[in-house]
Amino acid sequence: MPKRDKPLVLLEEFRVKNAPEDYGMADKKWNFKKFVKGFSIDIKRMENSEMEFDLIGIQPAFANAFRRLMLSEVPSMAIEKVMIKNNTSIIQDEVLAHRLGLIPLKADPRLFEYRPEDATEGTEFDTLEFTLKVKCTANTAQSKDSYRTEDLYINHSVYSSQIKWHPIGNQASVYKEADVGSVHDNILISKMRPGHELDLHLVAVKGIGKDHAKFSPVATASYRLLPEIKLTREVSGSQATLLQSCFSPGVIGLGPDGKAFVRDARYDTCSRNVYRYDEIKDAVILSRVRDHFIFNVESVGAMSPNIIFVEAVKILKDKCKSLLDELNKF
């Protein structure tokens, strides 16, 4: 990667200050070619539900827009309506319905449409239907003298795995049961005792996080700026170990000659602990790179995080497009 001028914010002992030669990114005239040239993406880590990547050389306004879009405007499916035919458990109807709404579903929201506001009946294109029918009874088969609930009762805990999917219309041939149900099988919904019964009809629809947090496809989506630490003089011996203890593990390394060096500032918490020690506080310059955003996206389970990010950016694009179409009618 070519070397570039990094705009820095200096984290001093009592204040946060922009570097003196940095006149702020907002002053530069807009130029798309320059933006493309200065912008790069670096993927650091990508697992099934978690991802870490860097957006380098981008305006904070864009980075924040992407973050906000992931949280509140990328759609996902969640249980929205609960028809309660019978609920004799101790958990109240409305609390139960709320709990059910928060269960993450595996269904891919891109394959569904939004349900029209005036629709009373769901169609196969915008609705998923489930039932949850559980009855708790005493376990008559148990012979040994045990007081453990799992020996005494049958169905004393209701888990998300007991939610059953009922395909409507053509859904059975399009989706498999494993593609639409709960992401986790072991979410405890309610606890029951003999005589308690649940008989529920659940309706899941597509929605966005702006409407209710249960529709948000991410558990977290956040960014932070890349820390940068510079040593201004040689630090060795006991001062070096003291310096090391002021930062997160792995940030400061000790050379074979006992001299401290900056190994990797990326995962530092920027705690500014160094400023507590007069003997070493002159040895470091703490800063963050103002246009280097480290994104952390953690998916709830329906879509992988890289798809969530792409969807978020596409939503911003679609917003611009529809507004432009509207403006061109003026």
């Binding site: 493309v36 993406i41 990547f53 864009f62 694009k317 611009c320």
Partner: peptide, 16 residues
């Protein structure tokens, strides 16, 4: 709006 659209397009392409 056009420029923002271009920014989005570029971001998606680069990211993918």
């Amino acid at each position: 709006l056009k420029d923002l659209e271009k920014v989005c397009d570029h971001t998606v392409n680069l990211f993918e």
